[in-house]
Simulated assay, not measured.
Amino acid sequence: MGSGSSTPRQKEAKPKTKSKSFRFHYFDGKGRGEVVRLAFVLAGLDFDDVRHTAEEWANMKQTGEFTGPFRQLPWLELEDGTTISQTRAILRLVAREGGFDGDTNLDAAKADEITDAVEDIKDAFFTTIFEQDEQKKASLEDEFWDSRLPTRLRQFEKLLEMNNGGQGFFVGKAMTHADLEMFSLLDMLESSSKERDLLGMLGAVPLVKAHKERVSNHPKIAEYIKTRRDTPL
């Protein structure tokens, strides 16, 4: 899954935004937004972390205040007023701005592949969180924790092993947005589902477990984790 023979991209072929300020709008929690915050941190870009309560967000939509292109969170506002919605679109923009979206077109595609696969798991997890029917909720939770998540973690374990024996990152030799996406998933599950034995589950996928620690120990990420708001979800 490394660079292989894929032709390196010319990094400046697509000029950066030149935006000196970014306002990132999301709820006051990790959810779908934390991976973007991590990307800003890794990129070394200043950004306003605008956090909305559920009540504030509902009121903004009711009063007609601008709430992004699709009236949903998250969304990003650039210095010139340009707005971008959708988590993965924002994440990939920040990764390109920071130069960690993969060194080649193939690496970029591989990073996107992993990012999208992680988002699939996040979608399944959020379904368990927001299900209102208690019986169905219990069934969804059991299916997620007993089958879907372990299966996907084993798949990620194999993908890690294919790149440098799993001793580094998912793609190439340096961290990409795929690594941040994976870390954000495990970080959220660990803090929001303490009754589940996530650490025990990670024992079956040692490369994934070590990867989580590797990302969290990056100096910029480690400093952010120490000072960020403590939210379970």
Results as ranks from 00 to 15, higher is better:
residue 79 E to I: 10
residue 84 I to R: 09
residue 84 I to N: 02
residue 85 S to I: 00
residue 85 S to N: 05
residue 86 Q to I: 08
residue 87 T to S: 06
residue 89 A to K: 04
residue 91 L to Q: 08
residue 94 V to A: 02
residue 95 A to G: 00
residue 95 A to I: 05
residue 97 E to A: 06
residue 97 E to P: 00
residue 99 G to F: 00
residue 100 F to W: 07
residue 100 F to A: 11
residue 104 T to L: 04
residue 108 A to T: 12
residue 110 K to P: 00
residue 111 A to I: 10
residue 111 A to M: 04
residue 112 D to Q: 09
residue 119 E to A: 12
residue 119 E to K: 07
residue 120 D to G: 09
residue 121 I to W: 00
residue 121 I to T: 10
residue 126 F to D: 03
residue 129 I to G: 05
residue 132 Q to H: 06
residue 133 D to Q: 09
residue 138 A to I: 05
residue 141 E to S: 11
residue 142 D to R: 12
residue 142 D to Q: 10
residue 143 E to P: 00
residue 143 E to D: 07
residue 145 W to F: 03
residue 150 P to V: 07
residue 153 L to Q: 12
residue 154 R to M: 05
residue 156 F to Y: 01
residue 158 K to D: 04
residue 158 K to V: 03
residue 159 L to K: 09
residue 161 E to K: 14
residue 161 E to S: 11
residue 162 M to N: 08
residue 163 N to A: 06
residue 164 N to Q: 12
residue 167 Q to N: 12
residue 168 G to E: 12
residue 171 V to Y: 01
residue 176 T to R: 02
residue 180 L to F: 02
residue 181 E to A: 14
residue 181 E to C: 04
residue 187 D to V: 12
residue 187 D to I: 13
residue 188 M to I: 10
residue 189 L to R: 15
residue 190 E to T: 15
residue 196 R to D: 06
residue 197 D to M: 13
residue 200 G to A: 15
residue 204 A to N: 15
residue 204 A to T: 15
residue 205 V to K: 09
residue 207 L to H: 07
residue 210 A to T: 11
residue 210 A to D: 06
residue 211 H to Q: 14
residue 212 K to P: 00
residue 213 E to R: 14
residue 217 N to F: 01
residue 220 K to R: 15
residue 221 I to C: 05
residue 222 A to W: 04
residue 223 E to G: 07
